[in-house]
Write a protein that binds this DNA or RNA. Structure first.
Lengths: 202, 202, 202, 202
DNA sequence: CATGAATGAGCCTTCATTCAT
DNA sequence: GATGAATGAAGGCTCATTCAT
């Protein structure tokens, strides 16, 4: 009962995590409502009924996946930016772009599931996650705002549309990107950084 | 499929179209499998059973929506580019961006439904639409390729990643953009064109 | 769509009623939660899913059964008493006893189901039916009160315990009485009337 | 089943009893099939799985409750009558009525659970308890028969319907009576005795 | 053309039960 | 003695689909 500190994951914790990972993968691939609990159970190699030992409902699974997914990108990006110390703002934003892409395409299925299915969920499923989503948006806004104040990006650019444009381009990768090697994501990141900052014109 | 030679739409054709539009809106909002035939029927103000007079199955409705949606953007973009005559390639691409956005966000729900749900569909539902999707991708590639040959965009940019980046940024708008007025879409288009060509750096 | 006056029951109305009667019988025999929709469907010779064409839920079926059941006894008793005209109060109460028993044991399964299962239902299922139950209790109370005022029953008898005693003795019959012929119920009624008024002592 | 010779109850016996009491209360309130083993376990402050250390199945719990419940009224009534010595038959029956009511409404939940749920159980669950039920009925029949022979109750009254009427009125109290104080049950008993013997007429 | 009625497969969920620890 | 973890059968309910009218 007492929570052990940094102890090995118990059997139960492993089962719980296996369910979450299986569900996240399926949600990302097929969407929330097209995914059945039997599919999740099969992927986790248990019976459908057993899922209810760990979760109250299909929605409870979704809830935890959405939360973990967003928290994961957010923390990755914050860590990357923090790690940049006093680099230029361009550099910081470049690192944020890379971190966002890595979290989305490599780390786990939580983030990609979140990005992919959130928009089509019913209102009551989205609601609890809105505060964190807003916080993440504000974090990027601050990054761009600081860069503009520092004169590193054009003064006539509005922050919000910019953020939407950039994150949109990043998020869309989830629709087509298939993981082959870490290099691929980094290469994709580099290209994206360049495109965002310098555009495509000669 | 529908027989017609510019005659007035019959009552049957009107019902058919109403079903398609109702379905497209719901598919875009909730996804394919979360949308029920009864919801579609209610939105079209008929009974669920009546849908089968016009369509063989739910999948048949989807099929037509996907097809119309993609055809619609594709034709809009081609028309816009053709209308530009011998303008610069930058101008042509700018018009393509605008046309894509207008088709996606304004014209109807077919295109937005297509963009939004395609990725999560089962393989057998995607398959028939792949040829057209590829053709559309090649059309953009040609646009960018010509621009590069003409020296209007940087020589070191690879075409495919560029196309993915641009269309991705455009498509993601479907996740957040809510139509208020035509101006908004055009403003969005102008900003996007600028960002794509000139980037954000000072 | 327009309600026809006293028209023949439509096919749909017949199905609906068949479901209700099948359910009432099973509820009375086994209780509410031990009865499955599949059992009800089988008894009504349809498929379980078809029940939902007529009812929103199992609870909706219960609701209508409870309502019909209580309404039925109530109206039977009122009609019987009214039919007695200006008879003595003893006579009126005797007729009420008979009417209650006939409704409970003969007329249909709605009343017996109601009497038998009400007490074990969850609070939220009972609640909507409380007003009518109270009204029925008050009706009996008035009957006894008038009889006491008229000096036909002993002055020292408290009305509420009396009503509870009498209705209790009547209702308990549902636990053991099995219908053979109309005579049986009437014989039972006569015995009960006698016992209630004259007691058993010599 | 439990081995014991007036020794103190072991821990195991206490657990077993706690399970039985918890179950009886829930069965009485909600019925047998609406009560889950997890509810019983929670009420007994153990885990659901642990119940199987003491009982083979949910039905085994029911079985013991039914048995204890009936045995308890039966013995109470016998003891009360026996304690009356050579009193009049009216007095003996009055004491039996009181004892039945006290057992039903006060002593424990076993008897009330039995009375309330027995009628809706499946045949195979009722069967083992029928002999004892019949014996209890015969016991009352004998009481009334003796009273009639002794000329204390009217000669024209048939014994079986009388017993059914009286026990029915007593048992129905379980549907509405809520325990407040011992006096209440005794008051209820006195009223019932009076009503049974003298009826309500002036 | 359109619907009302019904189907049956399958969904999420519950629950008595099992068993290794 | 007792539990945590898991099972699998079944329950209420939904939904695409069918078809006589």
């Amino acid at each position: 009962m007492a929570k052990q500190e940094a102890s090995l994951p118990t059997k139960a914790e492993k089962s719980r995590n296996l369910i979450l990972h299986s569900a996240a993968k399926l949600f990302r691939e097929q969407g929330f409502s097209a995914t059945t609990l039997r599919q999740i159970a099969a992927a986790a190699r248990i019976e459908a009924g057993s899922i209810y030992y760990y979760f109250d409902s299909k929605e409870a699974i979704l809830d935890e996946i959405l939360d973990r997914g967003l928290r994961h990108v957010f923390e990755s990006v914050k860590a990357a930016v923090k790690g940049a110390g006093q680099a230029t703002y361009r550099r910081r934003i470049e690192l944020a772009i890379e971190a966002h892409l890595v979290a989305l395409l490599e780390s786990s299925d939580f983030t990609s599931a979140n990005i992919r299915i959130y928009g089509q969920l019913q209102e009551h499923l989205k609601k609890p996650h809105r505060p964190l989503r807003r916080a993440y948006a504000r974090y990027w806004d601050k990054l761009f705002l600081d860069a503009r104040k520092a004169g590193e990006i054009r003064a006539d650019i509005e922050i919000e549309p910019l953020r939407i444009f950039v994150i949109g381009a990043l998020n869309w990768t989830v629709e087509w990107f298939r993981l082959d090697s870490k290099d691929d994501v980094l290469k994709l990141a580099r290209r994206t950084q360049l495109m965002v900052f310098d555009g495509i014109k000669k």
